[in-house]
Design a protein around this nucleic acid. Structure first.
Lengths: 213, 213
DNA sequence: GTAGATTTGGCACCCCGTGCCTTTTGTGGC
DNA sequence: GCCACAAAAGGCACGGGGTGCCAAATCTAC
């Protein structure tokens, strides 16, 4: 694809996305048909589907990119950098990215927040984050070490919970700093990171478990 | 609805669900039409839709019930019981419930694991759990206390990550004890509970971990 | 300017999900 | 046992999402 073609491509994508956000927030997601969006963007329905595989993707472009941002940070890490460090760095970079595109992001978030079926779809990006974090954290661990996998999942889950809430709060109060909020979240997650390579010694007393019920 | 009618109802639901799991795992989810499932269960397509609102729900009956189990535990808690305690109790009860219905649950899990669109749908139940945990944990907290909300979300996320992984591992090795694995997960989450709810900490013992795998 | 490749548009189709109405199947009252 | 009534099932048609296929338009290269 030529340079010019690529720009044209990005252009129609942007027009489709903009048209979608406008129509969705104006008259609702379910009440807007794909043909409407395509017409508003000046292309045919069929072409719209070539740019966005399905209706929902029209407003999940940014979240998809954020995961890529994180993955790129991870991919480009130095040998010496610890997992924790690169993870935190990636998370903060994503937060900064989100904050930097505030004006484009917020309207889409509004639509998602107002539409149950889209909130459900949003859950999927949550899951993608969980898997992404897990993949990073568990990369150096033996896959058949069940407790280690559990530990990694707990950590990944905590990261998802924290970062997601940070974004939600930022959406409710867009003047606050998302990066600052995210830093707080990272601080809360901190106790879950294994102390150095001190893999050991989670030990569970059965009676302790029993007292919990 | 009469007693007899209710039983008939449960019967057709069960037949639909069984037919669905069978056909889905045999020839794939996308390749099976709703009419196929309905026919296999001996009812009309329209009736199938009256029992299950959509195609995906055909295999997410159990997960939905598990959240209800948890909610019931929370709803029935004593005044004196701490949030942490009731939460752990609920989680373990759910694990026990899952384990008790092993034979019915595992085939469905297989279908979900093999079908991308269903894994995406499964992400939604993940989100439901996140919200459920958050609701419980944040119930006593001031809603405008951002850091407290963050803390609650981190905790909720960790719970989701841990319990979900426990189920995944149990699916891979169904002979292991899900309850034991879940206890390990709870132990790992433990550091995130606020010190105020000073319940004797879970501590992990190697042997407990080992029996869990 | 023309040939060939690429992109777009148009068309037809499948199937999910739903509103509406008819038919069948219970469920009392006598 | 019969009838009136309610409730569930079936049938039908429609809107709309998503896709394969082919023709038309547009771009690219020589």
């Amino acid at each position: 694809m030529s340079e010019l073609q690529a720009r044209r491509d990005a252009q129609t994508r942007a027009e489709l996305s903009a048209a979608a956000i406008g129509l969705f927030s104006e008259r609702g997601f379910a009440e807007t048909t794909m043909a409407d969006v395509a017409a508003a963007a000046g292309v045919s329905r069929r072409t719209a589907y070539r740019h966005y595989g399905n209706k929902e993707d029209l407003i999940f472009e940014h979240p998809r990119r954020w995961i890529e941002v994180f993955r790129r940070v991870v991919a480009g890490r130095e040998e010496s950098e610890s997992t924790k460090k690169v993870c935190c760095r990636g998370v903060l970079e994503v937060a900064a990215t989100i904050e930097a595109t505030k004006a484009e992001v917020l309207p889409g978030y509004g639509v998602v927040a107002a539409t149950p079926s889209l909130r459900a779809r949003y859950a999927r990006t949550n899951r993608d984050w969980l898997d992404t974090y897990f993949e990073l954290i568990a990369a150096d661990l033996p896959p058949d070490d069940a407790p280690a996998m559990l530990r990694a999942s707990v950590l990944a889950g905590a990261l998802v919970g924290g970062t997601d809430r940070a974004v939600i709060q930022w959406f409710l109060q867009p003047d606050a700093s998302l990066v600052a909020m995210t830093k707080v979240a990272l601080g809360l997650v901190d106790p879950l990171w294994p102390a150095a390579s001190k893999v050991p010694s989670y030990e569970l007393r059965r009676d302790a478990v029993d007292t919990a019920r």
